[in-house]
Design a protein around this nucleic acid. Sequence first.
DNA 1: ACTTGACTTGGAGTTAACTCCAGAGAGTAA
DNA 2: TTACTCTCTGGAGTTAACTCCAAGTCAAGT
Lengths: 136, 136
Amino acid sequence: MLIAEVSEKFELSQDTLRYYERIGLIPRVNRKTSGIRDYTEEDCRWVEFIKCMRGVGLPVETLIDYVRLFQQGEETLETRKELLVEQHKELLTRMADMQEVLERLEGKIDRYDQLIGAARHITGFSPVNFAESKGK
Amino acid sequence: MLIAEVSEKFELSQDTLRYYERIGLIPRVNRKTSGIRDYTEEDCRWVEFIKCMRGVGLPVETLIDYVRLFQQGEETLETRKELLVEQHKELLTRMADMQEVLERLEGKIDRYDQLIGAARHITGFSPVNFAESKGK
DNA sequence: ACTTGACTTGGAGTTAACTCCAGAGAGTAA
DNA sequence: TTACTCTCTGGAGTTAACTCCAAGTCAAGT
């Protein structure tokens, strides 16, 4: 697979794909004789995995570590697992924070609804006469 | 309240507090005659709110918009609410993505556990003789 | 009066993660 | 052969969000 297709398929720019490879965020992709990248199925799986992990904010650094460990072979199984466990934990924490904010926003939105209701009552505003009341 | 206390209380650097104010991420804080910031209770509530929202990644730009709308008064109630609703939606989406990654990580961790179990069986590795087997 | 320490401003520097670009080479089409 | 398109590399530029710094002010302590 050429870089253009991979770029299309995973919605990552060609520059980003080359960048990811350059910094070791995905393993080196083989080249044809002409020097052009030829992505294998496995390369694609790496791209997909990295895109997915980056998408929820796992740091590039950490993922580079993971790829490096992977390339070092079986002796790093334990370390790799620990890395994933750590990231799992981080994600849980972040989701808990987000859950709280979510609820806080819901509370705020409810209060806005009340305020807007009250304002509508006082000013005579309603979605129906919104257009006319605008210029007043 | 002086900036040092606010910084302490919310675990934001003084530089960050001044930066937030400069870009309009929190409303302008009043100064004493000598020009030194004197945070009110309300200023503190803004700091806390902004810290909380930034903590889960709401963009600075969006929050600046919110503060600006707030300062424009009651006519922006509807817009402010919509802004919050939008951010709420974004958060939900992000949390759904994170939930998927969370599960994917769990799957991967399980598979690592199996691999490690298998490796232990073959190599005789176990937590108990880990220290000795290290140098081998 | 002088020193000390906390604070001020405006502006420059940093970090993470891309994103863009110039110059060059290979492969195909007319 | 010339033109065109895709790709390559190394390096410079960008963006968001801080973070640091220099030079100066002010109030309190000695």
